[in-house]
């Protein structure tokens, strides 16, 4: 995918997701989290029509509900007792905390779906290689081998079936043995063949210079710098708010009321600016094609 938010340089994108996950983990304000979750869902829908989100949404909801229900059962902190569950107090605070946690968790999980759409393996490797070039290079080689090995292991399994080595029939121990037999053939064979890979690397000059470069075709344009600046500013702003206690929502020991004073209002406005960045970028792209 190379449109909208994903058409930006990987750095601002990566920073955005990292900052979002951090914010979702430290700001426990129900309104902020609800906005963040909605923004992420909207972003997902704009990016791929919510296809990937649909695949996993039921697990997410299950996890969210689980946490929502478990917290009041295991945590008995808080002062407002709602009722007793098997002689244990269930408090309003624990229920609300569970809700906040659920929102935080869902925001992070949904953000990762969008992350996986935007930060493709290639972009990830670009970011990785800008810090650890050799490690990233090794990972890319390993990624090259994965589909090869998968194909080989299927071929081996097929042929070994004709020799009675089958992982789908026989006793449990026999099946494990057979599976490992396939792995041993795979390892012996692949390591043997990989010698050719190392020869081909040498033939193209691997290791003759220490200043190996990396070919990644990403460059920061003015637009990328602008977005990067915007992300840093709005993220910094929210961090500052958090540091000063603006937008702090107290749960324990006693839940505070959800008031909409000026501080909170400003805080939510700042959040909206931050959350809107990718959505506006996606939307702007759509406008071009309207």
């Amino acid at each position: 995918m190379n449109r909208g938010f994903a058409s930006l340089h990987p750095s601002p994108c990566f920073l955005y997701y990292v900052s979002l996950v951090i914010l979702a983990m430290i700001i426990y304000h129900p309104l902020f989290l609800s906005l963040a979750l909605c923004a992420q869902i909207l972003l997902n829908i704009m990016q791929d029509g919510g296809k990937k989100l649909k695949e996993s949404i039921k697990y997410f909801i299950f996890l969210g509900l689980l946490i929502f229900l478990i917290n009041p059962i295991i945590s008995h902190r808080g002062q407002t007792v709602l009722f007793y569950f098997f002689d244990n107090p269930v408090t309003l605070e624990a229920v609300i905390y569970g809700f906040v946690m659920m929102m935080s968790l869902l925001t992070i999980l949904v953000a990762f779906i969008s992350y996986n759409l935007v930060i493709t393996p290639d972009k990830f490797m670009f970011l990785f290689s800008s810090i650890f070039p050799k490690t990233a290079f090794m990972c890319m080689m390993a990624m090259r081998f994965v589909p090869v090995l998968r194909k080989r292991s299927q071929d081996i399994a097929l042929v070994q079936k004709t020799r009675g080595t089958d992982t789908s029939t026989g006793s449990f121990v026999q099946r494990i043995k057979n599976g490992m037999q396939i792995i041993i053939i795979l390892i012996t064979w692949s390591l043997e063949e990989a010698i050719i890979t190392s020869r081909s690397m040498r033939a193209r000059g691997y290791g003759i210079t220490k200043d190996r470069t990396s070919y990644f075709d990403y460059k920061m344009t003015k637009r990328d710098w602008t977005v990067l600046g915007l992300i840093i500013l709005s993220f910094g702003n929210l961090l500052y708010c958090w540091h000063c206690g603006i937008g702090y929502f107290q749960v324990y020991p006693e839940v505070s009321a959800l008031t909409l004073d000026i501080d909170t209002g400003l805080f939510l406005a700042a959040s909206l600016i931050y959350l809107a960045i990718p959505i506006v970028i996606e939307g702007a792209e759509r406008l071009i094609w309207l």
Partner: peptide, 21 residues
């Protein structure tokens, strides 16, 4: 098959040039 070192065509093309900096 075994000569190829990296996962996408463009990286494989660039491999030799990267090695020489």
């Amino acid at each position: 098959e075994n000569q190829i070192v990296l996962d996408t065509v463009v990286h494989e093309l660039a491999f030799g040039m990267e090695n020489l900096g």
